[in-house]
Design a protein around this nucleic acid. Structure first.
Lengths: 140, 140
DNA sequence: CGGTATCCGCTGCGATACTG
DNA sequence: CAGTATCGCAGCGGATACCG
C-alpha cells in the first residue's frame, strides 16, 4: 500500500521535465511577442497604443492576450487611469526587469544573424529542389 | 510608373518590424523546443533517441520537425550513419553554438523563477474570482 | 532506430463588429 | 483609447500506422 497519497512533485526545477513548473514558464516566455514586449518596456512604462504601434504587425487581440498573460505571471503591472479617453499604462515589475537583458540578447542575436539564416534557408531549399530520386517513387 | 521594381528590403535589422527578416528569425528561435534542443546539444552531438528521451514530453513529430527547421536555418547538422540499425547524429554548428549561452540563460531563468511565477498566477486567478470591484483604484 | 504518412481535434490568430 | 465579443479558418501537435 502507498502510505504517502500525495505525489512527490517538488524536484529541483528542471525544464527538461514535462511536469516541472519551469517547463510551463519556459513555454510562456519563449515567445516572440513576450520577447519584444519585455524589450519594449525595458525603457519604462508604455501605453497600449504605443505598444501596438511599436510591435509592428501584432493584432489588438494578440497584444491584449500577451499582456494579460504577462500580468498574470507577475512580469508587468497594468494601470488604468479613469480619464476620458481611457489611458492604460504597462510597466515591468522587478521580475520582468530581471529578464530584460536575456530578451534583448535574443532579439539582438536574431537581428545580427538574420542574413546568415536567410541564406542558409535558401541553400537548404535549393538542395531540396534537386534532391536525388526518392527510393520509393510509388505513392500507391 | 515604378522604375524600381525591386522593393527596398534591406533596412537595418529590426525585429520590431513585421517585414524584417529578423522578425522571422526571432519567431523561429523563440520556441521552447528550440531552446531546449540548443541547450541539450551544447555539450556535444546527440542521437535522435537521446534527444527524445531528454526532452520529456516531446512527440516524435515535433522533435523531427524542430530538428529539420533548425537544420534548415543552419543551426545544426544532421549526420546519418548507414549502419544497421540506422544511427542519426545531430550537432550544433558555429551558428548554433553562438546562441547556447542565451538559451541556457532563458532556461535557467525559467527554472529559477518558476515558483515565483506559479505563485503570481494563483494570486491573479484568485483575484479574478472575486473582483466585481468597480473603478476603485484611482492613481490620478 | 529513426524516421514518414495520415487523420484529426483543439486552439491560436486574424478579421470584424461593438462598447465604456 | 483600450478594450471585449464573436466567427471562422489554418496550423500545430497528438495519436496511430507503417517503412527502410
Amino acid at each position: 500500500m502507498d502510505t504517502t497519497s500525495e505525489v512527490r512533485v517538488c524536484w529541483d526545477a528542471n525544464a527538461y521535465l514535462a511536469q516541472c513548473p519551469s517547463r510551463t514558464v519556459l513555454s510562456a516566455i519563449a515567445d516572440k511577442w513576450t520577447c519584444l514586449l519585455v524589450d519594449a518596456l525595458s525603457d519604462g512604462p508604455m501605453r497600449f497604443g504605443e505598444l501596438r504601434r511599436r510591435l509592428d504587425g501584432i493584432t489588438q487581440k494578440s497584444l491584449t492576450q500577451t499582456l494579460r498573460d504577462m500580468e498574470r505571471d507577475g512580469m508587468l503591472t497594468r494601470t488604468v487611469y479613469p480619464t476620458i479617453p481611457p489611458k492604460v499604462s504597462y510597466e515591468l515589475t522587478d521580475l520582468g526587469r530581471s529578464v530584460t537583458r536575456l530578451m534583448a540578447g535574443i532579439k539582438v542575436w536574431a537581428e545580427q544573424h538574420a542574413d546568415e539564416i536567410v541564406a542558409a534557408r535558401h541553400l537548404y531549399d535549393a538542395r531540396a529542389g534537386q534532391e536525388p530520386l526518392p527510393v520509393t517513387t510509388t505513392p500507391r
